[in-house]
């Protein structure tokens, strides 16, 4: 039995028009095709400037594609994010599409535990206590000391913030996970924990699309590599 197709990019292109730089046009992606199935982990590879982060952001609908389609299996039907309304995109992000970046966007005064628990609460169906408990378990696995849980993460170290960010990104089991170097400033032990969490997610049926610069990490999590090349400047 073949795995379920979760995400399909068709002839995807992205360019940026910079109105205040004399109308300069940057072509970053062109003619991209990619299929992602449940249970696999595709790692984007290529030199910096190849558009890997841009691709993830287009898939997350953080960037708007210039051409092509981003088909996502959402609630048992297909939706093209390039054409979806903002409310549809928000629903996809809430239920189907998770995105973990390198950086935690800190919300002033909100304690770590609640930042991690928030995606679960937004989904609804769990109590605050349950959500906090799950958040605590995840933070514990990621070796975030318990004394930090009730502090806002604004003053944490880079590595601690990144682990908080991963916990927040992974607390909700989502069918598709997008990871943009979430382990960049983690030590080997914590990278191993993240690798473990990802394989658990895959085993549970999530499809993962990510960027990992660290080769060791890449080898550990990838089921397939997707090579990318920088476009010639137009």
């Amino acid at each position: 039995m073949t795995a379920t197709l979760m995400l399909e990019l068709r002839d995807l292109g992205k360019s940026f028009e910079l109105h205040h730089q004399h109308g300069a046009r940057l072509n970053v992606l062109s003619g991209m095709n990619l299929r992602l199935h449940a249970g696999e982990c595709v790692v984007l590879s290529g030199p910096s400037g190849a558009g890997k982060s841009t691709l993830l952001r287009v898939v997350y609908a953080n960037y708007r594609p210039s051409f092509g389609a981003v088909h996502v299996r959402h609630a048992e039907r297909w939706l093209d994010l390039a054409k979806a309304t903002p409310h549809e995109v928000l629903d996809v992000r809430r239920r189907t599409l998770g995105y973990v970046s390198q950086f935690l966007r800190v919300i002033p005064r909100v304690p770590t535990l609640d930042i991690v628990a928030e995606p679960l609460l937004q989904m609804g169906g769990v109590s605050l206590e349950q959500a906090r408990e799950r958040a605590g378990n995840l933070l514990r696995r990621l070796n975030v000391p318990e004394r930090l849980w009730h502090l806002p993460p604004g003053t944490f170290s880079g590595g601690e913030q990144q682990r908080v960010n991963i916990a927040r990104g992974l607390i909700m089991p989502r069918p598709i996970l997008l990871l943009d170097e979430p382990t960049a400033s983690l030590d080997a032990d914590n990278r191993a924990v993240v690798a473990e969490l990802l394989s658990e997610a895959r085993a549970a049926g999530s499809a993962v699309l990510g960027i990992f610069h660290d080769e060791d990490m890449r080898d550990r999590v990838a089921t397939r590599l997707f090579p990318m090349q920088a476009l010639e400047a137009a």
């Binding site: 910079l18 109105h19 205040h20 952001r57 609908a61 953080n62 960037y63 708007r64 903002p86 928000l90």
Partner: peptide, 21 residues
Amino acid sequence: TGLTDQILDDPQHPYTQLLVS
């Protein structure tokens, strides 16, 4: 008009680009 993160991270209109930059 659109999602806040789209507008702030990938502004399309010249005025929005100016505002964001």
